[in-house]
Design a protein around this nucleic acid. Structure first.
Lengths: 367, 367
DNA sequence: AACAGTGTTTTGAACGATCAAATCGATCGT
DNA sequence: ACGATCGATTTGATCGTTCAAAACACTGTT
C-alpha cells in the first residue's frame, strides 16, 4: 500500500483550498474577502461560491498574527458584590452582544484593586494582541487611564475622567440628571420635604447624583438642610438612616436614594412601620435592579445598551496603526465617532413613587 | 541620508531577538520555555537571563496558529435576569480568576436560547481556536451537549446531564443535599410543619432541591402533603404563596425555599404581618445572594470557587490532539482529574432561621 | 509599433512561534 | 580505535493569513 496521499479528512478548509477549488491564487481569495473592489465581478462570484460551498472562514489566529489585530476587547469582571454586581453584569452582557455583532469578542479578566488591574493590563498586553480595553468605575486620581495612555493602548472608559481634564474617550450616564428627574417626579407628586440618602462624599458618582437632587430642590425652593445622609452602600444602613430621619422633628415625606440597595433599606423600614411605600412615604432608587422591579421600587435606569454602543463606537478609532508615511494626509479629517458621550437615564415609575395622576402600580418609563 | 537601517524602536521583543542576544538558535529559546530538560543548565540560565532582561513573552497568536491551542475558554453570559444573574456572575468571576491563574482566559458570548447558543458555538469555533466551552444551566433533553460532543469539542457543564446517561465531564452542586441541610436545620430548631416553596415541576434543579426537603421531612416523620407550592421564580409570587399557606387551616411554621428570590418574597410577607422572621416563622433561601445577606436571610450557598476549580480541572484533558500513533500506549493510565463532580453546598445561617441554641443574628456557616 | 495607463491577478516574503528531523560532540562498549 | 549511543543544539519546514510589489492583459495614444 502506497503512502497515504495527503489525505485531509473533513478538516476546516483553508484559504489555500478555496483558492485551488476556485482556480485562483491565495491573494485573490484574500482580496475577495478584504478588498472586493479589486477583484473582477466574475472572479469574485466564483470565489464567493466556493467559500459558501466549503463554509470557509478565515482563522482569527492567523489574521491576528499578520495584522496585529485580534478583534478582542478586554473587560474586567468585578469581584462579586463590588461595584454593583448586577449593573456591571448587565453592562457586560450588552457589551458582549453588541461587540459580537461587529465581529468583536470580550475577553474577561479580574483584579481586586486598581494596581492589580494595571498589572493585569500588562499581562494581557504581553500575551494577547488586544485591540482595546473597556474600563469601568473611573474615579478621581485614577491611575489606570494614564497608564494605558502612556502605553499607547486604545481604551474607553464607562465613567467620566472625574476631577481631571483627561482627553481619553469616555461614555457615562448623567447621574445628576437622573437624580434630578427622580426628585422632580417627587415634587410633582406634591412632596415638599425630600431627603437624599447618599454615599460617603469621596464618591464622584455619589456627589454627582446628590447634586441632581440638590438642584431640583433648590429650583423648587425646597429645603435641603438636614436632609442629607452619607452612608455606605448597604441595605441595613439605608434602613437605619431612613428610620432616623422619619423619627426626626421634621420628617421627610420622600426619599431620593443614590442606589437601589439603600432605597430598598428605606423601603423596608417604611413597610415595617406599617406605612405604605408610595402612598404614605415615597422612595426612589437608582440603577433599576431586579430587586427594585420585584418589590415595585421606582428607580432610575441607566441605558446600558446605549452605553455599550457608545463605547464600541468610540473605539472605532481602531484604524490605521499610525504609520508616518510620506504620503500627505489628504485634507479630509476622518469622521470619528463621538469620543465623549454623556447619556441620559430614565425614570422607571413603580409603586414606591407613583405618578401623581395615576396611583396604580403599573410600571412606566419616562425619559 | 541612507535608508533607515532596520531601526526597531522599543517594539515588543521576539523570540528571534532573544536568541540572537543569547547567542543561541531560535529553537533553543523555545526549548528553554517549553522543554527545559532538553537544554544544558548553563545555556538555559543564559537564555533565561536574556528573557528576564528583555521582558520577552511569547505571543499567543503565533503559538495558537502553530499549536492549535489558544488558551481560551468560551463561556456564555446570560441575559440579565435570566438564570440567576447574580449567581452566574459570581461563577464567571470565579472561573475567570482560576483560569487566569493557569494561563487561560475566558471569552464571552451571548445567546437567548439553546438553539442560538449552538449557533454561537459554531461561530466561535469557526473564528477562534478555542480550547473548550463551559456550559451552564443544563436540563433534560439538552441539545447543546450532544452537538458539542458530535463536533468533538472539549467542554464541561456546570450542571448534571439531567435525564440522560451522557458521559461528558460535568460539575454540579448537590441541591438535594442543600435543601436537606436547610430542612434538617429547621427541624433541629423545633419546626414540625415545614413548607416548600418551589419552582414549576419542569425544572430539573427545582425537583432535585424539592427531593431534599421531602427526604428530610420523611426521615423525621413530618408531613409534606399540602405543603408544596410550585411557582415561577418571582418575589411577588413567593410572597403570595407564603400568604396563602399562612392563612391555611394548618399553617406551616417554616419555609424552605428553592431560591432566594422566592424566600425573600416569603420573608417580606412574614415581616409585613408584623411577625419576626426567624422567631415566629422561619425562612431559608437558596443561593446566598447579596440580598439574602442584606436582609439576614439564612440561605444555602453554592461553593462556586470549587465549582470553577473542578470545571477547569475536568478540562485538563486538553492534552494530546489524539493522534493515533504506532507507539503503544504504555500501561500507565494518565491520571485524569475527576470528570464527574458533585459538590456539597453550605448552609449560611442568619436571622431568618437561626440556630436553635443561638438566636443571635450572627452569621455562621456549617458544612 | 511602441508606450503609457488601468485594471486584475499572481508571486514572494513576512508575521512569531513550534514541530520534526538533522547535525555536532562527547562518551561508551568491545 | 571505530561505530553506536546519547545529549545538546541547530536547521528547515510549517501553521493560515495579509502585505508589498511584480507580472500580466488590455485599452487608447502618438
Amino acid at each position: 500500500m502506497p503512502a497515504q496521499p495527503k489525505a485531509r479528512p473533513a478538516q476546516r478548509p483553508t484559504m489555500a483550498e478555496v483558492a485551488k477549488a476556485a482556480d485562483v491564487s491565495l491573494q485573490t481569495v484574500s482580496n475577495v474577502l478584504n478588498a472586493p473592489h479589486l477583484v473582477r465581478a466574475q472572479t469574485r462570484e466564483r470565489v464567493e461560491a466556493v467559500i459558501a460551498a466549503t463554509g470557509y472562514r478565515p482563522l482569527k489566529a492567523a489574521q491576528t498574527l499578520r495584522t496585529q489585530r485580534s478583534h478582542l476587547i478586554a473587560v474586567i469582571i468585578p469581584e462579586p458584590g463590588q461595584w454593583k454586581g448586577e449593573l456591571h453584569n448587565a453592562f457586560l452582557h450588552a457589551l458582549t452582544r453588541r461587540a459580537q455583532k461587529s465581529g468583536y469578542r470580550i475577553l474577561l479578566f479580574t483584579a481586586a484593586d486598581d494596581d492589580e488591574e494595571i498589572r493585569a493590563y500588562d499581562q494581557l498586553l504581553g500575551d494577547y494582541t488586544l485591540d482595546a480595553f473597556v474600563i469601568t468605575g473611573t474615579h478621581t486620581g485614577d491611575r489606570r487611564t494614564s497608564w494605558l495612555r502612556r502605553k499607547g493602548v486604545s481604551f474607553v472608559t464607562f465613567g467620566r475622567p472625574w476631577g481631571s481634564a483627561a482627553t481619553h474617550p469616555w461614555v457615562d450616564v448623567d447621574g445628576a440628571d437622573g437624580e434630578r428627574k427622580a426628585t422632580e417626579h417627587l415634587i410633582a407628586a406634591g412632596h415638599r420635604r425630600i431627603a437624599f440618602l447618599g454615599w460617603p462624599e469621596d464618591s464622584d458618582v455619589g456627589e454627582d447624583r446628590k447634586a441632581g437632587w440638590e438642584q431640583a430642590c433648590r429650583a423648587a425652593g425646597l429645603p435641603t438642610d438636614g436632609l442629607v445622609v452619607s452612608i455606605e452602600d448597604d441595605l441595613a444602613r439605608g434602613r437605619a438612616a431612613c428610620a432616623r430621619l422619619l423619627d426626626s422633628p421634621e420628617p421627610p415625606t420622600a426619599f431620593a436614594c443614590v442606589s437601589d440597595t439603600i432605597a430598598l433599606g428605606a423601603w423596608t423600614e417604611i413597610a415595617a412601620r406599617g406605612l405604605i411605600p408610595g402612598q404614605d412615604v415615597s422612595v426612589i432608587g437608582f440603577d433599576d435592579s431586579s430587586a427594585a422591579a420585584a418589590v415595585g421600587l421606582t428607580s432610575v435606569a441607566q441605558p446600558l445598551d446605549e452605553v455599550a454602543d457608545a463605547c464600541l463606537a468610540a473605539l472605532s478609532k481602531l484604524r490605521s496603526p499610525a504609520r508616518t508615511s510620506a504620503r500627505p494626509s489628504s485634507g479630509k479629517i476622518p469622521k470619528r465617532a463621538q469620543q465623549r458621550v454623556l447619556l441620559q437615564p430614565q425614570l422607571v415609575i413603580r409603586g414606591s413613587a407613583p405618578s401623581p395622576e395615576n396611583t396604580e402600580n403599573t410600571e412606566k418609563r419616562t425619559s
